[in-house]
């Protein structure tokens, strides 16, 4: 099956944007560990989390390669729809001001308070509690990155562009994080989540339809038509959600 730019570009950009959000969240936790307990437990926990994720990818990759693409499209499409619409719903509610925005500074403060509660910094031996905090943060946020890469990539042999998108997001966050040494609170996280929700939902409908045998008009190009539809619905939903709040405020 040939890879077309019309479908590789959305896979790459969806993986990049989604990974950016998750890596920023993981970075906040690792930074809190590094700031309060030193770089050694932060680096060890991060390396451990990445190693477990690497093992998961190495185990899943060959397994997925053995499954025919036709058999993958329906389950992956369903999971993408569940995941994508969930993100889009939450992003629309956040955009409408119904639920609070994700606040990296607040998460940094909360993580710092949790670490403070575990006791004083240990200078002589390895701080396992701090390392576990970094490990858990990287593992939990990384799981979502792994799912997104597999989900947008495996449906049509696009694991390479999706993986490149995720790797680029890691590189961007690490480079900026190394420069500023602060939680990346200026990243427009909700706008990114909104965009990712739109793209994952579009992929979800496309793959689910393919899995059900729907002959989408224009084939891969149908995916590009679904994106503005979900974007429009997301914006309309956010506007609709904002109205009752305005009425209550009045």
């Amino acid at each position: 099956m040939t890879m077309t730019w019309s479908i590789a570009a959305p896979a790459l950009s969806a993986a990049f944007a989604a990974s950016l959000v998750e890596v920023v969240e993981a970075f906040t936790i690792v930074l809190a560990v590094a700031t309060l307990r030193g770089w050694r437990p932060a680096a060890l926990g991060t390396a451990g989390g990445l190693a477990v994720l690497g093992i998961a990818v190495a185990a899943l990759g060959p397994l997925l390669a053995r499954v025919p693409l036709d058999a993958l499209q329906l389950p992956i499409g369903v999971l993408l729809l569940l995941f994508g619409l969930g993100w889009l719903r939450k992003a629309a509610l956040r955009a409408a001001g119904v639920i609070p925005l994700h606040d990296e500074e607040a998460i940094f403060a909360a993580q710092s308070a949790t670490l403070d509660a575990t006791g004083p910094r240990q200078l002589t031996r390895l701080d396992w509690a701090a390392a576990m905090t970094a490990f858990q943060g990287v593992l939990l946020e990384g799981l979502e990155v792994v799912f997104i890469v597999i989900a947008v990539g495996a449906g049509r042999g696009l694991l390479l562009p999706a993986g490149l998108g995720a790797a680029a997001a890691c590189a961007v966050v690490l480079a900026i994080g190394a420069l500023v040494h602060r939680p990346l609170s200026r990243v427009p996280e909700n706008a990114l989540k909104f965009g990712v929700g739109v793209m994952l939902s579009a992929f979800g409908v496309y793959w689910t339809g393919e899995g059900l045998g729907v002959p989408w008009p224009g084939q891969d190009l149908a995916l590009l038509a679904f994106v503005p539809l979900f974007l429009g619905a997301g914006i309309a939903a956010a506007a609709m959600a904002r109205r009752p709040i305005m009425e209550i405020a009045r």
């Binding site: 629309a92 539809l229 619905a233 956010a238 959600a241 009752p244 709040i245």
Partner: peptide, 15 residues
């Protein structure tokens, strides 16, 4: 159906 589910879910969430 997916578009309708999204609109309804956000409306319910706001309410």
């Amino acid at each position: 159906g997916s578009l309708a589910v999204l609109l309804d879910s956000v409306r319910r969430g706001a309410r």
